[in-house]
Amino acid sequence: MRRTASPLSLILLGTGVFLLVLAPLLVSYVSPRAKKNPIDISTTTVFTGTGSYFDTKSLELARDKPLTITRQVRGDVADSVRSGRAVWDVSTSIDTEETLPAADTTDSLQWTLERWVTDRRTNEPVHCCKEQPVFDGEAYLKFPFDVEKRTYRWWDGTLGSTVSLRFSGTKKIQGYEGYRFTGTVAPAKTGTRMVPGRLVGLPERGQVLAEEWYANHGVELVVDRRTGRIVNAMIGPRKTLRAPGGKKDALVLLDSRRMEFTPATQRAQVAQASADSDKLRLVGETLPVGGGAAGIALAGSGLFLVVRGRRDTPDQG
């Protein structure tokens, strides 16, 4: 008599071995390659709050007025593919009630256009592709993947330098929990501007090269742990002018204690973070663990049937 394994046992054994081989590949090969900054990004985030600003029409300080910050991020797909980096064009405008909706960005209280280039996997800055400005740090429009409970260097474009944001626990936004990072920006000189002397307390001088100063009452970012996406942001910008060599602020250009993502922006950011996080969890945790467990079960069953459940067939001779 010759003993042969049943087709079922071989199928179970083969499938189990395949799943056992696939599980570590998902963790070591597929998951790291899924953690890449997108190149076809197209998002708009909106902050709202109240504050004071210098009204250039009345030449007076407008106090406790609604303010809106709108940031649009568009990926330059062609340059991203060509360079292998994430090339993002970022438009940021600060508007008052009078300049909304902004038919022309030049009507805004403030408008900037930047180009940020990062390594798609590490999120570190890459200095190429007509980057503007040259920036530094670890966190910008997003944090790196797999956010840690530590202090990060966050790039503040207005300051033109990095700010230390420390891990400050967790916080729920629209019911979704993220890591909370906080920090402040002490007053710092960021540039100069030619203005009438009377605006900075020097009425006897026609035009002076006033000093631009910037501070931030408080920065709070709530970040999705897996993707590094910012699901909520709160900032408190303060921009002022000082007389040349002055020790005190002479004119407030912009001052707000709290500008925060609108509820609509929070919902959109949470929805995207949740969807992306679920995909990463699937390839990095659910499939490897489930596949490994299924592989062990199937391979074990198949091996058992091969050893113990073969069919006896007559020898041919």
Rank of each mutant, 00 (worst) to 15 (best):
K279L: 07
G49Q: 04
D64C: 11
Y214Q: 12
D146T: 13
I39D: 04
R63T: 08
R311V: 14
P263G: 13
A102W: 01
L13K: 08
G284H: 13
D40H: 03
I39G: 14
G137V: 06
R82Y: 10
D315A: 12
S58R: 12
V30G: 07
A103N: 09
Y29E: 04
G309F: 15
E97R: 14
G236C: 11
K189W: 01
L202N: 03
R225S: 11
A210G: 07
T313Q: 08
V223F: 02
R166Y: 09
D95H: 00
G236W: 00
G160D: 13
E124Y: 11
P144L: 00
V27A: 07
K239I: 11
L209F: 02
F143M: 08
I39A: 01
A5T: 15
R166A: 10
S93G: 11
E98T: 06
C128E: 08
L221D: 00
S108L: 10
G49C: 01
E260W: 01
T122I: 03
V307S: 11
Y176S: 00
T50R: 15
L26P: 09
R3G: 04
T265D: 02
T56S: 05
D224K: 01
R310K: 12
V27W: 10
P66A: 10
R198T: 02
K142A: 08
L59C: 01
T151Y: 10
R121G: 07
V77N: 03
G291H: 02
F167A: 15
T15S: 08
A271W: 05
E177Q: 11
S301N: 09
I11H: 03
T105C: 14
A186R: 15
Q72H: 15
V223L: 06
L141W: 12
S28I: 02
T265F: 14
M1G: 15
E114W: 06
S168A: 12
G290H: 02
R281I: 01
T265Y: 10
E220N: 11
E177K: 07
L26H: 14
V134C: 00
S164H: 07
D156Q: 05
E212K: 08
Y152V: 03
P32H: 10
G16R: 13
E131W: 06
G160P: 15
R267I: 07
D276K: 11
